[in-house]
């Protein structure tokens, strides 16, 4: 098995864990973490794709991952701030539909 294929498989496994966590965990913090894990899985897949051929490393997926990390950081920050505000207002750690 090539290195790229191995990393792609790991990325697939991570994505599966993340989606499973997102569906089964109702705690807001765990859900935000699951989204982060899914992001990491996608970034890992992109970095693995950049290294596939025998030729030099493809720079485009790296640019995409950099942009993606910036977006993921700001989205996580906003989600955490919103969750904190929600917790402060209601004392709940779960959304009302999930039995807060």
């Amino acid at each position: 098995m090539t290195q790229a294929a191995l990393y792609s498989l790991v990325a697939g496994g991570l994505a599966g864990i993340a989606v499973y966590g997102l569906i089964t965990c109702t705690h807001l913090l765990r859900r935000i973490l699951a989204l982060n894990l899914l992001g990491s899985a996608v970034f890992l897949l992109l970095v693995a794709l950049a290294r596939r051929g025998p030729q030099a490393v493809d720079p485009l997926p790296h640019a995409m991952v950099l942009t993606g990390i910036v977006i993921a950081v700001s989205a996580t920050a906003f989600a955490l701030a919103l969750a904190r505000r929600y917790h402060g207002r209601t004392g709940a750690e779960r959304l009302p539909e999930d039995g807060a």
């Binding site: 989606v19 997102l22 989204l35 989600a79 919103l82 505000r85 207002r89 209601t90 959304l95």
Partner: peptide
Amino acid sequence: GERAALAAALRYLLLALL
């Protein structure tokens, strides 16, 4: 800013990020 608005925004954010 009230409870329902924050919950709705969180639900939307989590689903949309997914």
